[in-house]
């Protein structure tokens, strides 16, 4: 009897776990859109982002696109994910790691004209860590895989 009871409990626990994992996977699948921390330039290009709504825009800062504005406190740059790109305007202090060819997340609103006006700029770090000599070489061949994540 003892062995049978144990067996029954094991089967019950496993069934319970399977049901639970199934439920969670379904919930996560349903959440996939809502749980994304940021939208991409492709989302904007496809018209999935209404103008004037607060969103986060994530992508790479396009090479050569950072332009300090004459007022001294504003900066203009372009966020790209490869196929699409969005011009961004920001007034304030950017983080140290905000660089060209580097990941960025901007919080703000899309203007009807297609300009993204940011209130906050966050630098997005990627999963690569290397000493300075190696890093500068690697920066030349930077991929856009940060954006895909």
């Amino acid at each position: 009897m003892r062995a049978a009871a144990k067996h029954q409990r094991l089967v019950l626990v496993l069934l319970g776990l399977a049901a639970l994992i199934g439920a969670v996977l379904l919930a996560m699948w349903g959440l996939a859109d809502r749980a994304a921390y940021f939208r991409t330039p492709q989302d904007i290009a496809a018209g999935r982002v209404p103008a004037g709504e607060p969103i986060r825009l994530g992508g790479m800062v396009q090479a050569g696109s950072i332009a300090r504005q004459p007022d001294g406190v504003s900066v203009a740059f372009v966020v790209t994910d490869g196929p699409a790109s969005v011009p961004v305007r920001y007034r304030g202090i950017v983080p140290d790691l905000f660089k060209e060819n580097s990941g960025v997340v901007a919080e703000g609103r899309l203007s009807p004209a297609g300009l993204f006006v940011a209130d906050t700029i966050l630098a997005k770090h990627d999963e690569r860590y290397m000493p300075p000599q190696l890093g500068n070489q690697a920066a030349e061949v930077r991929t856009k895989d940060t954006v895909e994540r």
Partner: peptide, 26 residues
Amino acid sequence: SVKWWRTLHQGESIELTGSSVAPELL
């Protein structure tokens, strides 16, 4: 979480298939 959703947190640096952390830092 870092694979399913776009997150601010970076992806996995160290996986079974390899590591994107340079050996002198790792």
